[in-house]
Write a protein that binds this DNA or RNA. Structure first.
Lengths: 228, 228
DNA sequence: AATTTGTATTGATTTATATCAATCATTAGG
DNA sequence: CCTAATGATTGATATAAATCAATACAAATT
């Protein structure tokens, strides 16, 4: 499928790789290891030491944190082209979130050493990493507003739009997320999620059949999401 | 009060300054400008271009984002020694939060140019910035759990402990935050906040007299905060 | 001293949402 | 094919927390 000619030719959507020189690319190449995960497998476990930077070549995963009473918050869904750097890097070297596979996945693991060397030797690479981090911060700000000021319907509308626009790139998509997962993305209980989905279905905003979801009226969903 | 001998001798708690060389320190010195703000003044306004990195030499401020229906979320309280880098840096160059003074403040503004030059030329400085960012990310994770899984009492207990331990460094403190501010820190309505504070007071966990708050039983507060 | 203004407090009511319990559907094993 | 086991759905109920409205208090202004 994919050869190991170099990370610059990889499908990961990160401008930083293009800034690497021959030697740095070689270090990545040599440290890298390709791993396939099955649906349900844990790729990163919160609390463990972070040894790898993970590139997703194929498939979907969920990135989540452990909350209270065995409840989780799914921060985001990861997909082909995504690139995961733990916020533990340069601090406590621990993973502050878990990642688990939603489908079969092809990944490429790069050692933390190769990564930190690239960061320390190549300032353009470093700048891209900081840029990525700033984006993560602003995303979390939006998530905070989402969770504290919107009611269920707004948060769930937001989640459906997120899945459609950012993850599956289609108004009609099949998801391997369970109802509980969609609830964890929206910070509502599973039962409430199901009721709201039913509401949306009955008012014709979406069509839903098991895990197949189609958005009939994106405008309405956007409005529900916006006003909360 | 403070002379301009160099940022390395400044009271800002950021390891990055120590990594700067003579020239870089000079660039900071030359670009810097000392500004005093009065209570209530806006220091950074969300949506404006970010031109300065702000160091707080003295006083308190609140860092907040605009949510829905003219409600705000206070992300954190800033104090002497804090150092604010907007997440807009290296991305859209816009401020993604507002900062306003809670007391009279002495600040030191450093131009974005001097800052980005230091970042680009000094990898140790860059690493410290990334480190700072990672800390911000994990703090936001905790805030998400706080806001989505804890009920009012837990969130408010958390806020009181935060003010005591992280901001005022005393079990007995006077705050210039209004009730609405404390509510915005806890993601509850002002009325609910007042009722919970009254509860805590009546059960003897805290003493409260206007803006003077004393924690009588930190253990109890910690427990309320932990279980939600 | 009287009046305005902003903040703080209290009480009554409504609403949103979680929880509990039961049922249904679908898949996986024996 | 039958039976667990797991996930999805529905309904009834309890509870948390916001909202609305009124009042009290304190500081600032006339």
């Amino acid at each position: 499928m994919s050869d190991i000619t170099g990370c610059s030719k990889c499908n990961i959507k990160f401008n930083g790789f293009e800034t690497l020189n021959e030697d740095e690319l070689n270090a990545f190449k040599e440290s890298h290891c390709k791993v396939v995960y099955q649906k349900g497998e844990t790729i990163i476990k919160e609390g463990t030491r972070c040894n790898n930077i993970i590139c997703i070549k194929k498939g979907y995963a969920k990135l989540f944190i452990k909350g209270l009473e065995n409840k989780n918050i799914i921060i985001k869904v990861l997909k082909e082209g995504d690139f995961i750097v733990s916020p533990g890097l340069f601090t406590d070297n621990l993973n502050h979130f878990s990642v688990s596979a939603l489908t079969e996945m092809d990944t490429c693991l790069i050692s933390v050493e190769a990564f930190t060397n690239a960061f320390r030797n190549n300032i353009c690479f470093a700048e891209q990493i900081l840029k990525l981090n700033h984006q993560i911060t602003t995303d979390l700000y939006h998530q905070l507003i989402n969770f504290s000021h919107k009611k269920m319907t707004g948060r769930i509308a937001n989640t459906i739009l997120y899945l459609s626009e950012k993850i599956y790139h289609s108004r009609n998509f099949y998801t391997t997320l369970s109802r509980q997962d969609i609830a964890d993305l929206s910070s509502v209980s599973k039962e409430s999620l199901i009721r709201v989905l039913k509401d949306f279905k009955e008012s014709g905003i979406i069509s839903i059949n098991g895990n197949q979801i189609e958005i009939n009226s994106p405008k309405t969903l956007e409005n529900i999401s916006r006003v909360g």
